[in-house]
Nucleic acid binder design. Sequence first.
RNA 1: GUGGGUGUAGCUCAGUUGGCAGAGCACUGGGUCGUGGUCCCAGGUGUCGCGGGUUCGACUCCCGUCACUCACCCCA
Length: 425
Amino acid sequence: MSGPLYRAPRGVLEYLPPRGEEFLRVRERLAAPARAAGYSYLELPVFEQTALYARGVGESTDVVSKEMYSFTTRGGDEVTLRPEGTAGVVRAVLEHGLDRGRLPVKLWYAGPFFRYERPQAGRYRQLQQLGIEALGSEDPALDAEVIAIGWEGYAGLGLRGVRLDLNTLGCAVCRPAYREALVAFLATIEMDAETRRRATVNPLRVLDDKRPEVRDRLAEAPLMSTFLCAECRAHHDTVRTLLADVGVPWRDEPRLVRGLDYYTRTTFEFVHDGLGAQSGIGGGGRYDGLAEVLGGPALPGIGFGLGVDRTLLAVEAEGTGLAVAAPLDVFAVALGPEAGREVFSIVVSLRRAGIRTDQAFGNRALKGAMKAADRSGAAYAVLVGSRDLAADVAQVKDLVAGNQTAVPLSRLVDTLTRLLQEKDS
RNA sequence: GUGGGUGUAGCUCAGUUGGCAGAGCACUGGGUCGUGGUCCCAGGUGUCGCGGGUUCGACUCCCGUCACUCACCCCA
């Protein structure tokens, strides 16, 4: 096969029917708990000035150093397709003064994000994410709320294999001492050049290495938990108490660091084992210093990003199903061109009455049209031929039971409305 | 960026020591001039990923290349 002239760009995921409906369903279910908790929707640009990510996310991160889709515009601006959501949300909050009103500001967003990586199972160059951000409060109850919202989102999809990993990274008061201790420790162990480089730029991220041989060497590494200041310890204890109170289970994961520079205190990750090597289906944390880094006032914040693609994979891996409803109520069929005109009017009338309706197009043979009616999933077929036209009726056929009755055209909408209601109950 | 696997019909895949490219599904038409689901008949599509090489002859063997895929680092 020489193949079509054009192909989708490398590493993008396309959701074709019927999977597209499942994708939408997943996104709706993940968003529901956030909307129920007073988070407002925000639609942001999918590209920003490159400097926003370089500063906000951090030059030392993989995301910025090797995964950005960056380009220069015709006007000479350096821009980047958004690799994550938080930096853009904080930028918009600061730019438009959303932090001047009632705090905390609670926002949610969804859409595509871009990272230039080698694609593999569960990892795409264009990925779909849904996120929430709460800014303007250091209250640990907000940390617990954000985590619980994520948890409820997965629960709403019927997922049973989601695990929550939880950690705290300390703050500007206590982290420097820990960092120093960690650097001292890292100097004593053996590591490859790339890891050594990472250790100098951002030593905490070395802890996140998943290679067994590296993990072994890190077994004796100092942990943040022993360096926490009183405030951070109290904050973390409260978060965990609140989660326990509402029955959200977690696993303390003292090595959970996460890849972005802006995190402070609470960090967490939702993990699922059904997707191959990429097990993280969502994650987030607190970023109390980010607004200041971006030139704004002190504005603490916490949020998460949930991977919609990966969540759908998890749903499919668990085989729980999403019960996507039949898309149609009625399928209309015309026999001959004169009837075609009548059928078109019928179809539009039915739709205006809230009945989901499609029709056979293209002058198909009746047998083929009925086959199309059958496969459409509609509960009823409406047939109109010249004999019916002469009698001012349409044939209404129950596609499940198989019986058919003539209904006067003037009563067609009412009759079908009633039949569909009866079927529902 | 590095490594493994796979490329044959729209989809899922067969194809024997190298000898004329197949099945199922799907699609379209027909089987009583106006009736689907089961059944029967008929129909069509392929640069066998692409380019070289070996050979009388290559889907098959060799080399290269591209794509897809899985994995490593890392992340959603």
